[in-house]
Design a protein around this nucleic acid. Structure first.
Lengths: 229, 229
DNA sequence: TTTATTAATGTAGTTTTTACACTTAAATAA
DNA sequence: TTATTTAAGTGTAAAAACTACATTAATAAA
């Protein structure tokens, strides 16, 4: 029995991660300053090469973990980029993944060590290779996903206020949402737990904190519900 | 300057195509009977390997053309599959593409020569490797896409009746649609041209033929319209 | 000319979405 | 202690979208 397709050409496979985060200043992305050639000193997505005995999903997880120390992160494969000269060093096909993380939780030390930095989506610098295209593609997919299932919870701290949730969605969709309509829509989904606890940072009155109810959410997902914001 | 990432592992990259077609018996898929090992004699998606100086999109186009003789076909990249042993011969990552074609137009000769065959979606045989998964994934994506933009026109002959269009959508979405509501929704999109010509095959009265108005469609696409069927 | 067959067409009831403004709670300052 | 300030919390009416549904029209064949 055959044990190789000897005539076919092999190529390098890279994985690039578009890492989204959110804080009170809006939607952000994690970029790294390259400290090697080519394009040394320019900003880039976080990436690496697929290893011989590694599955793409695991490569993405490994790369994310290397730079942020995080595990158990929501990631989704996006697209394979294959322009001949996309990487000037050598023919490389790159599969992109996007991740959503809570900015508060990651390991700030590690990020510093790698010269990584958070940028507002709107103020992201020019990136190497085809990484600008990857980023735009990821933003589009994030918007899309968000309008279908309420994926964005991954970007918030465990306990959050309705205002935070609202602002997250406004940041992702980059449009203003009506506060009352938003709250009643979210409530009608019945995927949040309202706590007795209040957040007293943002106002004198204080605002109730919520947690995301993953069980109820999974249950709902089966009937592929649509969230129309 | 660096001219290779010498430490990294190279892999084989395959492209597999999920080719959808439609005729008056419903939604179909084009499969090929493998005439080489491994899995000789089993059914498989149509595929091939990426060449050294080829972009993935072109590989998909080349493969589709090889088996059907068709050009200028709607294709969309779907997903990269990378399980370690997905191909028992050798580590291979496969990027899937799906295509929509009009069954009437393809080269029936070529298909015969390659032992390729059309199967109803519902009656597709068991496939090699992870091709079943690819197929299911593609069906899901096709449904999804269809519910967002009226992609399905690619599957019909140039001139078609409202009934054909309705049946196509019913086949893709695998649910019954209300004829009147469907027609008025399609009409409200204003992306069809109603011809003076009638199709007299299906009834005594005859039914008007339509063509798809690509210009108007592109125009609409800019305001990312949603088609809710 | 009657019959049979599929095409074509409109509306009323229901549900969903949108737009919109005042009251409440609590801390701080007077 | 009272007044002031700040953001939180809440409901409704109008508009739009969606759903369900049945009759008439055109033509070919008998």
């Amino acid at each position: 029995m055959l044990n190789s397709y000897s005539s076919a050409d092999k190529v390098l496979l890279a994985v690039d991660c578009i890492i989204f985060g959110f804080d009170n200043q809006g939607l952000k992305i994690l970029l790294i300053k390259r400290d090697f050639e080519p394009e040394k000193g320019k900003w880039s997505l976080i990436g690496g090469f697929l290893k011989r005995d590694e599955v793409l999903d695991n490569a993405a997880i490994r790369i994310l973990n290397t730079y942020t120390g995080l595990n158990d992160i929501y990631m989704e494969q996006l697209y394979a980029y294959s322009e001949i000269d996309r990487d000037p060093v050598e023919r490389t096909i790159s599969v992109s993944y996007y991740a959503l993380i809570n900015i508060e939780n990651h390991n700030a030390e590690m990020i510093k060590n790698y010269h990584a930095q958070w940028f507002s989506i709107a103020e992201a610098p020019d990136l190497i290779f085809d990484h600008n295209e990857m980023l735009q593609h990821a933003i589009r997919r994030l918007r899309y996903r968000t309008s279908i299932k309420p994926i964005g919870f991954e970007l918030l701290p465990e306990k959050f206020t309705m205002r935070q949730l609202l602002e997250l969605y406004e940041a992702i969709l980059s449009k203003e949402l009506d506060k009352r309509n938003f709250i009643s829509k979210i409530n009608s989904l019945e995927i949040l737990n309202k706590l007795d606890e209040k957040d007293m940072q943002s106002s004198r009155k204080g605002s109730y904190l919520y947690t995301f109810n993953k069980e109820k959410y999974e249950e709902k997902l089966l009937n592929d519900f649509v969230l129309n914001l």
